[in-house]
C-alpha cells in the first residue's frame, strides 16, 4: 500500500523505521503509513456471508408468500416489508448494531440497512419529544439516501424518456 498523499518525502519506511524528518507537510503521509489498516479481506468475507444470508432469508419469505397465493410483485413487496419489521425489532433490542459492526456493508446495503438507519435515530431522539425529537431526527441518517434516490430516479426517468422512449 503506497498511496501518495503529497509530493514530500515519505518519512517512514515500510518496516516502521523513521527515515526523514516529520514535518507538517508530510505528516498526513506518515500517519497513513503508521495507522493500522482495515482488515479488508475479513470485512469483505463477512459482508458477503451476512449480506448473502439476508438475501436468502428475503428469498425464503418471497417463496412463502407466493405459496400463500400472493402474486410475484406482491410477494417481493411483502418480503421487503417483513425484513424491515424484523430489522426494526432487532434494532430496538440492540442486536442489529452488533450485527452491523461485524457485517459492515453486508447488513447496510440490503433494505435492512435502511430500516436500521430510520429506527436507530428514532429511538435515540425520542427523548427530545415526538415532534422535535423523533419526528425531526428520524431521517437524519436515511434522509440523504431518500433525497438522492429520488433525484437520481428523476434524472434516469428523463434520460429514458429522451433516449429510450
Amino acid at each position: 500500500m503506497t498511496k501518495k498523499l503529497s509530493n514530500q518525502q515519505n518519512p517512514i519506511s515500510p518496516d516502521g523505521k523513521l527515515t526523514a524528518k516529520i514535518t507538517k507537510d508530510n505528516y498526513k503521509q506518515y500517519v497513513f503509513e503508521k495507522s493500522p489498516k482495515s482488515a479488508h479481506a475479513k470485512n469483505m468475507f463477512w459482508a458477503f456471508v451476512i449480506g448473502g444470508l439476508i438475501c436468502v432469508i428475503g428469498q425464503i419469505f418471497i417463496e412463502i408468500y407466493s405459496l400463500l397465493g400472493f402474486s410475484n410483485a406482491d410477494s417481493s413487496g411483502l418480503a421487503s416489508a417483513t425484513l424491515v419489521v424484523i430489522t426494526a425489532i432487532l434494532t430496538g433490542f440492540g442486536v442489529f448494531d452488533q450485527i452491523g459492526r461485524f457485517a459492515g456493508a453486508g447488513s447496510t446495503i440490503p433494505i435492512t440497512g435502511f430500516a436500521n438507519a430510520v429506527v436507530a435515530p428514532a429511538l435515540e431522539f425520542k427523548a427530545e419529544g415526538l415532534i422535535y425529537g423523533l419526528g425531526a431526527k428520524m431521517f437524519v441518517v436515511a434522509g440523504p439516501v431518500v433525497v438522492n434516490g429520488v433525484f437520481v430516479s428523476v434524472i434516469i426517468a428523463l434520460l429514458t424518456l429522451l433516449i429510450g422512449g
Partner: peptide, 17 residues
Amino acid sequence: ERQYRYPLELGVLRSPM
C-alpha cells in the same frame, strides 16, 4: 456518540483508528 457520530443503534463498521 450522539453529538459527534452516529445514533447508538446504527449498525456501522468501526474504523480500526
